[in-house]
Computed example of a mutant assay.
Amino acid sequence: MTRRFDFKQLDVFSEVPLKGNPLAVVLGGDGLSVEQMIAFANWTNLSETTFVLAPRHPAADYRLRIFSTSTELPFAGHPTLGSCHAWLQAGGVPKGQEILQECGVGLVRIRRSEHGLAFLAPPLLRSGPLDADMLERVRNGLGLTADAIVDAQWVDNGAGWLALMLKDRRQVLALKPDYHQLLDLAVGVIAPWDRAVDGDAAQFEVRGFIAGDGMPEDPATGSLNAGLAQWMLGKGLAPSSYVVSQGVTMGRAGRIHVEQVGEEVWIGGAVVTCIEGSLTL
């Protein structure tokens, strides 16, 4: 027996359609099996597809399951903001001032912001420096010389990210990864903008590579930027409020807004709906 589900496809971290990170959202997907969710996520061929379900936790407003083209993720940033936008647009009413999303890492706080929506960065599951063998593997996979890397760290908040900091934006934009060497790794690269050369629309340039996934480069990544923010703010390498540019080499113009409020780090951006309809499965 087939069923119909409300469906939206959105662009996250952009005010302009087709310039951010696309996301497929299935609303009211409780009647779908895990096998159907996996098959549909693989079929969309987007970096992530989500299914909004009834919450199990009494404090949550909704529950979210997040799938890449090949696996389920306990947390991801742009699916969190995009799914929240879709839920609100479909008439969802939060129980409190903030929206509480239930997902694999637990409850994630989301709030409305001047830039759209923002989520509270979840705690890092793994941090600290990369070991020498891993650093060498990533350096070779990115085609970098040893002196090009300013610093490197695990910034894993559920998506497996590790990160490298380079000296300037041009180095980041020039990267041509060897995905075979980076297979099964999630690698983020960041460098500061030079205001005199790059302008002031953003303060950092980021690229995110996910070798082995259907989308080997991500155009605008909430989870990666959440981990990067906790790393850089913790080391005093970034101001308490800044903007990240991502997706330039893919023809996108993602903008991720980072704000530290006390001990909390919020990751936000705009979301636009591009497609609305129904899914029959």
Results as ranks from 00 to 15, higher is better:
M1Y: 00
F5H: 00
L10D: 06
F13K: 04
E15L: 04
V16F: 06
L23G: 07
G31N: 03
S33M: 07
A39I: 00
E48W: 05
T49K: 01
V52R: 03
H57M: 01
A59C: 00
A59I: 04
D61S: 06
L73D: 04
F75K: 08
G77Y: 08
H78S: 02
S83Q: 10
C84W: 02
W87S: 03
Q89M: 11
V93W: 05
K95P: 09
E98A: 15
E98L: 11
L100E: 07
R109Y: 10
I110A: 07
R112A: 09
E114D: 15
E114Y: 13
L124G: 01
G128N: 04
M134G: 05
E136W: 10
E136C: 12
V138Y: 12
N140E: 15
G141Y: 15
T145A: 11
A146P: 09
V150K: 09
D151M: 14
N157F: 09
L164V: 13
K167L: 14
D168H: 13
Y179E: 13
A196L: 09
D198E: 10
G199Y: 06
G199L: 10
F209A: 02
G214M: 00
P216L: 10
A220P: 03
A226V: 02
A229C: 00
L233G: 02
K235V: 06
P239L: 04
V248L: 15
M250H: 12
R252F: 12
G269S: 03
A270C: 06
T280R: 03
